[in-house]
Design a protein around this nucleic acid. Structure first.
Lengths: 210, 210, 210, 210
DNA sequence: GATGAATGAGCTTTCATTCAT
DNA sequence: GATGAATGAAAGCTCATTCAT
């Protein structure tokens, strides 16, 4: 089934605007991003931003929604089914690490949204409780480990997810200031394996009861 | 020896601008902050920003430098000398938590600076390797624990500091998005004790792991 | 083939800005000219200066380029083909005089540009060696006179052009100070004929010197 | 007779301001010159400009007056008494040339004043008819030449002075634009002798013409 | 005479947005 | 659906000048 030319162009134009806007907002923040710059990096004109998204804010909202949607999609790919709970939890933490390293634009957008105290996000219905799926996976592995007696029983899935997220987000989001303060480059390839293993270690040590 | 009125006023004017600017930049980011708004919240005029700081960017640099200086000063107050290494480490992690909760403006500034990829920070000489003092304390406690045989020997002070910082920063910096995604308020008083104890637990479990 | 309304307006808007800017820069110099004043004398707004010329300096560059282009165009109209070399040279000098009197705005712009040590001019590619055409005409008349034995052979076209230009430019550019110092009005109609004849005399006497 | 300290300092301060202001106005024009810059290049402060000269304009007026006074002083040094009228006239033209090359700041100030249509100059009483002395010398030489039958009788001193001034001023004042247009550097040492001799030639040829 | 602090008015420039076709 | 031209409001910044001591 083929869409008519016009419509396909419309879809393409919209998608291109969204992709470029994601880049620009992520690079410069909401206030720092320039509508002109977004348009210029596109094959369309500024006018289309108003046509499709109503304005700068509408475009930003669309970028935010799309970005979270994409991340959730990516999270669905995560699978630790065949591993024992201990290895599964380590895999989960380390894969989360990889995932964050691979989606720095998204993490920047989230930081920007936090600067704005989440006020835009709160207006996007589809983002409500979007965290659940990711946490369910943690919960499942945690429960398995608890049942098998390898994990302590007094830790919630939320806590585990918080500790993993904090580490993974921080190491991307704060790489510039933290790196500068300690004279280390968190993004350097030679540090990657160590930093990746670290969060696995931390979480597994923490959860493994004696 | 008393300073002349005029000069004292100058110091006050400069300090007031700096204080207000810290608030405004922290609230709105670099691009979002308005020079006019900063001035309006002050007893002086916009003109003085240019007189004392050369411009918006100069003011932001001064804010950043002053903020880091203040934090370092506060860190100096940390003392865990009389505690055993295990309790000292827990105290260190939890005090760091308190400290971050108490200085949200600073954490927001750091997030803003990371959005700008640390480009301003890099131009402030006094911030080079400013992290050392904080890390030395971790190092000292870690060494004591290692010597006493209670801490594992394969973990560096940098790693410990990274894990603690990540947790403490994240839970302030990302409170809006993370809270919204999971329907929990990280800043709610009833969660404070739990969140505070958590990082202590994590670090101690990790380091005491054989 | 008719251009669309909109586009024709754009051309008109741009041209109007250029014309008014020529006046204002010529009246007040580069620093003395006010972007606001230029806009006010126009049917458009200040914003259009930035839209079409990028800023005050871009506008000034456009004014300079256009002014030189206009002058060169006017110089093309000069024709002394049928006159003998002696009369041709006199005509050339005196027509140059007329020409300068008729384009005082241009001469003022040139004076302004010299105050700035030609720094803007140097950045306009189209002005490089723009003087050649004017000098070629002098060269041709000079050569004819030399061949016919009425002009001395040891004078270059450049020298002749320099002497003529100096006189014609000075008498416009320095009319205010020179006039005041000697209590004479170089622009007074009753002096015009004498001042015009003078440069013809000077050049012809000089070149026919045995 | 020794002046009291205080007074001598006052004289020195005033003189220093005047000297620096001459430079700055000459470099940047009236509007382009910055009161702050003038003060900064001085050992005094901005306040002194207001104390001694009343403001920017007063300072500019003082600069203008002082500059003309200095030039007139220099002109007094001119002496062609023992030469024959022909050689005297050539010497006069060529010395005027030297004089202009040596006082480029002054010529720039004059150009600036002409941009402002001489409006400041007109308010300085001491500059009225300041040109007379310079012209008297021309007049005297011209008269001698006329009496001896070597100079034509139909040329006024004013005309001669105009031709000489035009050439000498132009070649300094318009050096940047003229030089660029023709790809020649009027200020290059290797051109000096030729350009200097030129005006002598022109004037002498013109005046000896029968 | 001198000084550092302060200032209002106005300058150039930028921005998201809308209009006319 | 699309486009180039246009715009008002407000932003950051600069200037000559004056004040308080």
């Amino acid at each position: 089934m083929v869409e008519p030319e016009r419509q396909r162009d419309a879809v393409r134009t919209r998608a291109e605007l969204l992709a470029v806007a994601t880049e620009v907002f992520s690079e410069s923040g909401y206030s720092g991003a320039r509508v002109d710059e977004i348009a210029e990096r596109t094959r369309t004109t500024k006018r289309m931003i108003y046509y499709y998204f109503g304005g700068k804010e509408g475009l930003y909202l669309a970028v935010l929604e799309e970005a979270y949607r994409g991340i959730r999609e990516a999270e669905r790919g995560l699978d630790v089914g065949e591993l024992g709970p201990l290895e599964a939890m380590r895999r989960l933490a380390e894969t989360t690490y990889d995932h964050h390293v691979a989606h720095q634009d998204f993490i920047r957008l989230v930081a920007i949204e936090n600067i704005h105290r989440g006020e835009h996000m709160r207006r996007i219905e589809s983002l409500r409780d979007l965290g659940q799926p990711a946490m369910s996976l943690v919960d499942e592995v945690l429960a398995r480990g608890r049942d098998e007696g390898v994990f302590r029983a007094d830790v919630e899935a939320f806590d585990v997810h918080l500790v993993i997220s904090a580490y993974c987000v921080f190491q991307v989001a704060n790489q510039y200031t933290f790196g500068h303060l300690f004279g280390r480059d968190l993004a350097a390839p030679e540090n990657a394996a160590h930093l990746r293993g670290l969060i696995g270690d931390v979480v597994v040590s923490w959860l493994t009861r004696r």
